[in-house]
């Protein structure tokens, strides 16, 4: 806040010193933006501010968290029993599938060894909670409650139970900021699971539609095809579901087909997300805040 007293009145009455200050602050703002845009020059300043802002984020999140807690505390017994039953069934189902997964994984490793390709090491995951904080409404960003202290790094992939959600944009001491795959500035290398056809998925700004603009009209894509991450580019782990093809438009005379994909993950409803440490990232010693990690977020 500006200093009260005689000096303050001078700023108001006499225009010159005030205009000078205005121009000075504008230049400082522009300089800050320039440095920030060039990435990572201002990490410490930003981190300091983020700690100041953290109580505000918590204050915003608290009532919503409390509401959820109350909802759970006062839930009907019958409802809980039904949910428990459903979860047991789900667990049984998942368990049966896992039994085969172990042997399949072993087989896969054997085959890969025979082909001389690198083995796929299991990824490490950590559960993070999304803070109910609205960031810029024009971009698909959100904040999670894990930061530097948990070893989060820029470019790290985020999943939910159904598929890929997004990646980490910025890491702060207590929180991190992530971008959804549906952000209009986000691109993600993928492959069609059925035939291994590789392409890139781009966000549309709409959480239920992603775009695949770079497939030729003749490409072998069908409605309902599962799209998985291809792992090219090294940011996202390969083999996780991204979505299902929901719309194909092949216009004669156009070189490329208009293909849209519905995300498998619940982009706008997720509350908990999984942070993934890919084997590759662990090997390269967590290339911390290397901006090249963000190559995939154009």
């Amino acid at each position: 806040m500006s200093a009260p007293g005689g000096i303050g009145n001078d700023f108001v009455r006499g225009g010159t010193s005030q205009s000078f200050r205005f121009i000075l602050i504008c230049i400082v703002s522009l300089a800050l933006m320039f440095l920030d845009h060039r990435e990572s020059h201002l990490t410490t300043i930003r981190q300091a501010f983020s700690v100041v802002v953290y109580p505000i984020q918590l204050a915003v999140d608290l009532p919503i968290r409390g509401w959820r807690w109350a909802e759970m505390a006062f839930a009907e017994r019958a409802e809980l029993l039904a949910e428990n039953e459903a979860l047991k069934l789900e667990r049984l189902d998942a368990g049966v599938r896992l039994q085969r997964f172990d042997s399949l994984e072993a087989e896969n490793r054997r085959l890969r060894a025979m082909l001389d390709s690198s083995a796929r090491v299991a990824d490490r995951v950590l559960v993070a909670e999304i803070l109910a904080v609205d960031l810029d409404p024009y971009r698909q960003r959100f904040t999670i409650n894990r930061g530097l202290g948990d070893g989060v790094y820029v470019g790290q992939a985020l999943l939910d139970a159904d598929g890929i959600i997004g990646q980490i944009m910025r890491v702060e001491p207590l929180t991190s900021e992530a971008v959804l795959i549906s952000d209009a500035d986000h691109a993600l290398p993928v492959a069609i699971n059925r035939n291994g056809l590789r392409t890139i998925i781009i966000g549309t700004g709409d959480t239920i539609r992603l775009r695949m603009p770079y497939l030729p009209t003749s490409a072998d894509v069908e409605m309902g095809d599962l799209v998985i991450s291809s792992g090219l580019g090294g940011v996202f782990p390969s083999g996780y579901p991204v979505g299902y093809v929901s719309e194909i438009e092949r216009l004669p005379g156009q070189g490329f087909a208009e293909i849209y994909v519905e995300p498998a993950a619940k982009l706008d409803r997720a509350r908990e997300v999984l942070l993934v440490w890919t084997a590759e990232a662990e090997l390269t010693n967590n290339v911390d805040d290397d901006p090249t990690n963000l190559a995939e977020a154009r």
């Binding site: 806040m1 500006s2 009145n9 930003r46 505000i56 960031l135 904040t143």
Partner: peptide, 20 residues
């Protein structure tokens, strides 16, 4: 005379951090 350019500047920086 009390809430001038500096207040606006600091609030702006907080808003920038908050909104990413």
């Amino acid at each position: 005379e009390r809430f001038g350019l500096l207040t606006a500047f600091w609030m702006g920086l907080l808003l920038d951090t908050l909104s990413g």
